[in-house]
Design a protein around this nucleic acid. Structure first.
Lengths: 225, 225
DNA sequence: GATTTGAAATGAAAATACTGGTTGTCGAGG
DNA sequence: CCTCGACAACCAGTATTTTCATTTCAAATC
């Protein structure tokens, strides 16, 4: 799960990222509206956390713009203003949640999770392909009848595969998806191997087929054998 | 999808091509303004990546010229200058995006994709000719109904042919396309033969016709028999 | 028809990429 | 404090591709 934190105050941004990273989210920070705009149009995030008071963007129209560019992303506003009007306006404009500063990181975390859960719930809440089934809300994976317990990275990896069936994914794009943009590409490929290996093993252990095909010189793809 | 990379710094050009090729684009390099000019007037590219500081062209008028010659092509500027004025000027002149060096290749990739998405709105990502079909995004090749699994060089070669149907390609230009410029020209042409052979064999194996015609003394062309 | 040159086929070496096992580190939970 | 699991890192063995040298075949030239 990828989260974009739009916050100019460095200290706060850092602690948010710190906290949410520990919870298993892949985080990226934008400290200006301009930057956020750019990032959103380039990558897809599951949730965006926006501070209303940015140096180069005034108030609510930031949220509006975000909503226009990437309707798919969930938006949580964090703001020092705590009047009722502001709250209502924020939600009217299209944000999904509104928190007033100061707040506990644990609460932010809870709201992010709740938001992501809500969003997944609306659509097809299960992803199914062949004998593999993923319950998104519960974050549980089944192979045939048996449950398959996956770690975070393995789970993210599987989801990435499942939403790109039959598509060749380069090692680089996998790394990008799993770790965000801050990576020494050469260095991380080993880890891709490791996680691929573990995911494969766990699925096989539960009696599933190995749908992860390696494409020599390119990467991997998830497809029927 | 064809991309032209206009960049005189060899190392950078090469890594860009390397990365984007993996992502399924067909790339060509021009290291001077004149070369770029030539290429643009001959072929049609979906996207052009331009370094502002070329040896034989001064700054922004390169972009203007490109825009005049081939209005259809999307333009991404990459530049070491990162003042706001330069950015604005670049965008005003007609480029679609502006990146400051240094940058991550994954970001460039994302921007190229985003640009192409914007331009031809879910355009057809397949190349089809006779019974040969290439799904660029999935990096899959079909001959008739059967899938044909190709190695990297074979795939690159086929794409090069498909984007130059009926055009005679010299061994040299094929070699340049497959390996860049770092070649002992005389010595490596034999390797072209090898890959041609393998590509031919694999396509024939799947029941396709042999569209690769050898032109004695010149090279090859891809055309109906 | 002989000669010259270019192209195709072959097979083996070298380079590169993937696998699977193993180890180390760190933080979470007992 | 200890244990455990996730993640990262390392390494050796294997597989595949790519390169390269050599031979054979085909086309053009004279």
């Amino acid at each position: 799960m990828k989260i974009l934190v739009v916050e100019d105050e460095k200290g706060l941004a850092e602690s948010i990222v710190d906290y949410l990273s520990r919870e298993g989210f892949v985080c990226e920070v934008a400290s200006t509206f301009w930057q956020a705009d750019e990032k959103i149009s380039l990558y897809q995030y599951d949730c965006t956390i926006v501070d209303l008071t940015l140096p180069d963007g005034d108030g609510f129209n930031i949220v509006q713009t975000l909503k226009k560019i990437a309707a798919a992303t969930g938006i949580i506003i964090i703001s020092a203003r705590n009047t009722l009007e502001d709250k209502i306006k924020g939600l009217e404009i299209g944000s999904d949640d509104y928190m007033t500063k100061p707040f506990h990181l644990s609460e932010l975390n809870a709201r992010v999770k709740s938001l992501i859960r809500r969003r997944n719930f609306g659509g097809n809440n299960d992803m199914v392909w062949k004998e593999i089934r993923v319950q998104l809300q519960a974050r549980r994976v089944f192979v045939g009848q048996k449950e398959c317990v996956l770690s975070r990275k393995e789970y993210d990896l599987l989801l990435y595969f499942l939403s790109n069936i039959d598509v060749a994914l380069t090692k680089e794009s996998i790394a990008e998806h799993l770790w965000g943009d801050h990576m020494d590409s050469s260095d991380s490929l080993d880890m891709v191997y490791s996680h691929i290996k573990n995911l494969r093993r766990k699925i096989l252990e539960k009696g599933g087929n190995d749908y992860i095909q390696s494409i020599y010189g390119i990467g991997y793809k998830f497809a029927a054998p």
